[in-house]
Amino acid sequence: MPWEFRSDLPIYTQLIAQIQQRIVTGQLQPGDRLPSVRDWAAEAGVNPNTMQRAMTEMERQGLVHSQRTAGRFVTEDEAVIRKLREDLARTQVRDFLAAMGQLGFGPDEIAALIQKEGENSL
């Protein structure tokens, strides 16, 4: 998955979002060793200090942890990853509901639409 950056948000928050996505989709597995900050920054085309900032924040969130000399790893705590997955889903739903609200749809209409579209696509 290539890195993509919008111009109106801080880069480090976008890095975090994209790495979270990789963890939730299993592209990065629990316990996987992450590239070095320097290599990963070069690959993403961002400043190493920015990647470092993203890593520090993700360590704080418990999603990655570093071991003194061995490097940095994705958490092996499945519960943390499950929670992240739910949080991301909730954000998606909220954004969706906000957009539907702007189109003038109420909760019942939205539910009916989801039902119908779900049947068509599943």
Binding site: P10, I11, G45, N47, R53
Partner: peptide
């Protein structure tokens, strides 16, 4: 994308000197 910080020079003075991510935020 690669910058830590930016300096805006305006008529020979620093009009702005800040971190890029702070600026975006």
């Amino acid at each position: 994308k690669v910058l830590d910080e930016v300096i805006f020079l305006d008529r020979g003075k620093a009009a702005l000197h800040t971190s890029v991510d702070d600026l975006r935020a």
